[in-house]
Simulated scan of single mutants.
Amino acid sequence: MKRNFLKGIMMPAAVVILGVGGAFATTSMSSTKGIADVQGYRYVSQAEPCRAEVMCSNVFNSTICTSGSNQLFGKPTPNAANCDLPLYKIPN
């Protein structure tokens, strides 16, 4: 009797565990895309320290974001005068 009870409860428990794990995995994958893309800026002159160029990513990868031969940087806050945060190329 005890053996039949354990067999009957194991399959539903496994399905519930897989379902909860899948829900957490899909939620975490969709939440990072929106915050990863940021505007990349390049230094021009003292009068114009940050000129907007192309969209980059703030998620670390091995390819630095560039425009031509210029490395692009991000601003720490949207209204900041300086742009000194390293940015990376958006992965395809």
Rank of each mutant, 00 (worst) to 15 (best):
A13N: 09
Q71L: 07
I64F: 05
C65H: 08
G8M: 12
G68A: 07
C65R: 02
Y43V: 03
P91T: 06
T27A: 13
G74R: 03
L6I: 14
T77N: 03
C56L: 06
Y43R: 07
V44G: 02
K33M: 08
T77I: 03
Y88F: 15
F24Q: 06
L72C: 09
A81C: 05
K2I: 10
R42A: 13
M29K: 07
M11P: 06
M10I: 15
D84A: 13
S28I: 15
L6R: 11
Y88S: 02
S62V: 12
T77M: 05
C83F: 09
Q46E: 15
P76H: 02
R51A: 14
A81F: 03
P86E: 07
M10C: 15
A36V: 01
P49V: 02
F73R: 11
T26Y: 14
G21V: 11
V20Y: 13
G21H: 03
Y43M: 03
R42V: 13
V54Y: 05
C50G: 01
I35D: 14
G40I: 03
N4V: 14
Q46W: 14
A25Y: 13
G22M: 13
P91Q: 08
G22Q: 08
D84R: 07
F24S: 07
F5V: 13
Q46L: 13
Q39C: 02
L87Q: 08
I17C: 13
I64V: 09
T27R: 14
E53I: 07
P91L: 14
T26E: 10
I35P: 00
V44Q: 12
T26N: 08
S30T: 10
P91H: 04
D84W: 12
N4M: 12
D84Y: 10
E48T: 08
V20N: 12
G68N: 05
A36F: 02
G19D: 04
R42N: 10
I17A: 15
R3L: 13
G22N: 12
S67C: 04
N61P: 01
K7Q: 10
L6Y: 11
I17K: 06
N82K: 07
E53L: 09
G8Q: 09
V59Q: 08
A81W: 06
C50F: 04
R42Q: 12
N58Q: 12
Y88D: 02
V54P: 01
I90L: 12
Y43F: 12
F73T: 04
K7C: 10
G74H: 01
S69W: 06
A52L: 04
V44N: 13
P86F: 02
S62E: 11
A80T: 05
V20W: 14
I90S: 05
D84E: 11
P86T: 04
M29A: 12
K7P: 02
G22P: 01
M1P: 11
G68T: 04
T77S: 10
C65P: 03
V38E: 02
F60K: 08
C56V: 04
G68C: 04
C56P: 01
S45Y: 07
L18Q: 08
T77F: 04
N61C: 00
E53A: 12
V20L: 15
P76C: 07
T66K: 15
K7S: 11
R51L: 15
V44C: 03
